[in-house]
């Protein structure tokens, strides 16, 4: 992907993925808990911009994230438009990394935990969970 594209500001209508490695973070009805949307450790939340990535490329990045854990495998991803964060008075900024040029950070979170939880509960109302397709691993 061209660096010119990934360095562009994140638009409100852009789709962002947050990878999920714990099955407990997905509720029985297929919605996602707020747990994986709590920022840590710099009071920011890592997400991946879909931009022009193919589905396979989005899953490949997820596999790389999950491969850094010891016990768990990629379960799926929570997709949401950047506007879901912006409505909570957060900002999404492009933060390309060598391994993931589409990396972005959700910033401007309040420092206190109870406020973070309140925001995360609102965000997950707009998250669409996609389970990892069986064919990707």
């Amino acid at each position: 992907m061209s660096h010119l594209i990934v360095e562009q500001p994140v638009a409100d209508a852009e789709w962002l993925a947050r990878y999920i490695v714990r099955k407990e973070h997905v509720r029985r009805d297929g919605t996602v808990k707020p747990d994986p949307f709590i920022p840590f450790k710099y009071v920011e939340l890592s997400v991946t911009r879909h931009l022009t990535l193919t589905e396979q490329q989005i899953w490949d990045i997820g596999e790389r994230v999950a491969s850094q854990t010891h016990h768990t495998q990629l379960q799926g991803r929570g997709d949401t438009e950047a506007s879901a964060y912006v409505r909570q008075r957060l900002r999404v900024i492009a933060a390309p990394e060598e391994q993931n040029p589409n990396h972005a950070n959700v910033i401007d979170w309040p420092a206190d935990k109870q406020a973070q939880k309140e925001i995360a509960l609102e965000i997950v109302k707009h998250v669409c969970y996609k389970a990892k397709p069986i064919t990707t691993s």
């Binding site: 490695v21 840590f40 854990t69 010891h70 016990h71």
Partner: peptide, 20 residues
Amino acid sequence: ELFVVARECGTQNWDGYGAQ
């Protein structure tokens, strides 16, 4: 569930994003 989650999240970076 508590037993399983506590055990499997008992190592650093259990979420791939640098979790405690």
